[in-house]
């Protein structure tokens, strides 16, 4: 959970301990909620607020723009919460374009009956996460739906980032021989959420890897690494990310299973349930495709910028066969395919 803001909830709980339909109704209650809770937390100047925000980007700068919606149950989980996800997720999408997140919008869909205290905790988490990313929340929206029609809170964020370098970062930049680097161990977010949701009694709690990625990307860019492509590992995990890159670039990608970091806890849960950690979701992990002789330095820079376990896991191979080949831990090669649906726990 967020440290920092620990003021009490600014909406008097004795009046409205829970969100009501009126909080999305456009009247005084909604204005109270926006000005006393959202503006206060996000540092918005009420006098300058409109439905839209006026932005002044640096002259001639390339901008990146993205949006994402966040639905997660439970709202709070070991290592994070929906508020952090909503900010980091969008900021990370921008970081994967090589852009520094500058401006964010936050749209809330609240379920009638949501405890005001819960909303306040989410809002504080959003404010703190935005601050950590160096981004400002400049606009937003609030809707309230009937009880039973939402999971407490859904959040949509959109973000605009500024690109402050000349590299063209994207699948088109892949070149034969490039190094494939991952910034840390896989699968902690997916397993942490599943363990919470399903009430799995694990001996050691697994914490989500939810984290902002810009500091790590920035370290590589400022360190002069020739970054060709970046991709965060969210739903579908490493496997989906690599398959998307292979098919977008038409290159064969080759990775070595033995080099791919997976924590013992995640590995154990995956073994028990018949999951493959290469398909499990992360929220603070990415692959960087960099010029091959920059790989070692890129790993060092990532480590110095706080990447938990940066590793060189493979390489980009020839063009013409868009597929991902995995060298298994016993030294045989096989296809690393994209999953058809989601992974399901096996019978035995």
């Amino acid at each position: 959970m967020s440290e920092g803001f620990q003021l009490s909830c600014p909406i008097p709980i004795r009046d409205y301990p829970n969100v009501t339909l009126a909080h999305g109704g456009g009247g005084r209650l909604m204005h109270d909620l926006i000005s006393r809770m959202f503006f206060a937390a996000f540092g918005t100047n009420a006098a300058q607020s409109h439905d839209g925000a006026v932005l002044v980007p640096p002259t001639g700068a390339r901008l990146a723009f993205t949006t994402d919606s966040y639905v997660v149950n439970p709202l709070f989980f070991p290592g994070g919460n929906i508020g952090e996800l909503a900010v980091y997720g969008t900021a990370n999408d921008l970081a994967m374009c090589g852009a520094r997140a500058c401006w964010l919008s936050v749209g809330f869909i609240l379920e009638e009956g949501l405890p005001m205290e819960t909303l306040w905790q989410v809002v504080q988490a959003i404010a703190l996460a935005a601050q950590k990313c160096g981004a400002v929340i400049v606009t937003g929206d609030t809707k309230v739906v009937d009880r039973g029609k939402g999971d407490g809170v859904y959040i949509n964020t959109a973000g605009i980032g500024v690109i402050e370098h000349d590299l063209d970062i994207g699948p088109a930049g892949l070149q034969e021989g490039d190094a494939i680097i991952v910034n840390g161990d896989l699968g902690r977010h997916g397993i942490a959420i599943m363990a919470q949701r399903e009430g799995l009694a694990l001996e050691t709690e697994i914490e989500s890897d939810c984290a902002p990625l810009w500091p790590q990307v920035c370290a590589m860019l400022e360190g002069g690494i020739e970054v060709h492509c970046l991709r965060d590992l969210t739903r579908g995990g490493l496997s989906s990310a690599l398959n998307e890159l292979a098919s977008a670039s038409a290159h064969r990608l080759f990775v070595r299973e033995a080099e791919i970091p997976v924590s013992p806890g995640v590995r154990a849960v995956c073994e028990l349930l018949g999951f493959d950690p290469l398909y499990v979701a992360c929220e603070g992990r990415f692959v960087a495709i960099v010029k091959h002789d920059h790989a070692e330095r890129a790993v060092e820079l990532l480590r110095s910028a706080g990447a938990p376990e940066p590793r060189l896991i493979g390489s980009v191979q020839q063009k013409g066969t868009p597929e991902v080949i995995l060298r298994s831990c016993i030294g045989t090669n096989r296809i690393l395919d994209m999953l058809s649906g989601e992974q399901l726990p096996r019978i035995c």
Binding site: G274, Q317, Q318, R327, N333
Partner: peptide, 26 residues
């Protein structure tokens, strides 16, 4: 089923016929 033989072949080696794995190197 994820344990069905056809699903296993499909997932891990369906393009095998036109896949020259000998060229794949670290």
């Amino acid at each position: 089923s994820s344990e069905g033989a056809c699903a296993a072949y499909y997932r891990y080696r369906r393009q095998r016929d036109n896949l020259d794995l000998s060229g794949a190197k670290p």
